[in-house]
């Protein structure tokens, strides 16, 4: 796994995620990276990567909406000007 620090350089994070607990894709996976978003500007996140942790918080066992809300809140918060993604290239199945 790889720790990727995404700086909040744009108004949007700019990724689309698929997956979550009780679905075919047990952990959230990046399916789109939007041009001009913070993730695209960072250049280290890739389509297909599976998100294991956000700011040290595990995505394991979280339903899709819970995981999406957590990522959105991590990007919205003013406490930090970055979001830490722990990602892996492997399709981690539980």
């Amino acid at each position: 796994s790889t720790l990727v620090r995404v700086a909040k350089t744009a108004s949007t994070l700019g990724i689309a995620i698929e997956g979550g607990a009780n679905t075919r894709q047990p952990l959230p996976r990046i399916v789109t990276i939007q041009r001009g978003g913070s993730a695209h500007n960072c250049g280290k996140l890739k389509v297909g990567q599976v998100i294991l942790e956000i700011n040290g918080i595990s995505m394991r066992g979280r339903e899709h909406r819970d995981a999406a809300r957590l990522i959105a809140e991590a990007f919205k918060t003013k406490e930090r000007d970055y979001v830490d993604f722990l990602v892996t290239e492997l399709n981690v199945s539980l």
Binding site: I17, E18, N22, T32
Partner: peptide
Amino acid sequence: VREKRLALPPSEITML
């Protein structure tokens, strides 16, 4: 394991 997984519903997609 694969059959069990395929029996699960596909996930929705959220843009962030």
